[in-house]
């Protein structure tokens, strides 16, 4: 099974969370197992990864935390809009 986190995914990839990193704050942001989001931006110098979730909310996730995500790519859905 591949586990590259979010950092190696290309922008505009839509994915679903399979396993969360050990970080209680993620839940407060509304990211749980099963949440779908779209990778929007990757900040330079190993900066945060910006993802967009279903409520059209954008979240910035620290590079280190983002690298520990386990996700699977999905196609379609509300998130795949341009």
């Amino acid at each position: 099974m591949k586990n590259e986190g979010l950092c190696k995914l290309a922008c505009a990839t839509v994915c679903r969370v399979k396993k969360l990193p050990d970080c209680p704050l993620l839940e407060g942001l509304g990211i749980e197992v099963g949440t779908e989001f779209c990778i929007k931006q990757k900040s330079p110098w190993r900066g945060p990864i910006v993802v967009e979730t279903k409520g059209r909310r954008q979240l910035a996730i620290d590079y280190h935390i983002a690298s520990q995500f386990e996700v699977e790519e999905v196609n379609g859905g509300v998130l795949s809009r341009k």
Binding site: S43, P44, W45, R46, G47, P48, V50, A60, Y63
Partner: peptide
């Protein structure tokens, strides 16, 4: 958020 990665090297948070 954009320059967080850079600032981190200098002990700062974005």
């Amino acid at each position: 958020i954009l320059i967080d990665g850079l600032l981190r090297r200098f002990g700062l948070h974005g």
